[in-house]
Design a binder for these strands. Sequence first.
DNA 1: CTATTGATTCTC
DNA 2: AGAATCAATAGG
Length: 190
Amino acid sequence: MAPGIRLPRAFYARHTVTVARDLLGKLVVRRRDDGTVRAGRIVETEAYHGPADQASHAHRGPTARNAPMFGPAGVAYVYQIYGVWFCLNAVTGRDRFPAAVLVRAVAPPGGGGAAKDGAGPGRLCRLLGIDKRLSGVDLVTGEELWIADDGARVPRRAVAAGPRVNVGYAGAWAARPWRFWLEGDRSVSR
DNA sequence: CTATTGATTCTC
DNA sequence: AGAATCAATAGG
């Protein structure tokens, strides 16, 4: 069993941007089918908020792929991009309001290990063995994937904010400072 | 900077 | 049905 206390549904059921900031420093915990457990500390996130957010997959309404975003908070939304990479999101906000936080990068727990392995949303999913079978699983009650708080404190000044990446098509929404990361962490994507 | 890659989504 | 689109990444 990995260290820490699993985040409750109330953690996710807040404003997307608040959840994105608060997820920094938390642990993504993945239990694989063979029973082994892997974890990574979140060092970078992005917020996606509502049907009006042009950068969000939910902007064009519900589809088979983004259905979890329209459900209750505390559920995983995993999708495949460019045919190759998976990206992990945590659904946030009110039930039926499409919002989620993209986990963009994790650091190997314990500080050691290769920092590059968790830098970037695609690499993090490869590291933790996350694929789209995990889309729609409940992060609060599920046994395969959840997010935990091990008590690590994140100083306010260690958190940096800026525009989201690779969403240039989103017009004015692309400029919103809805990406958060831990300043100076080697695992933050670039 | 470009190539890759295939599920998902858009347009007939 | 076929065409266009990507919440990336690796390699020049």
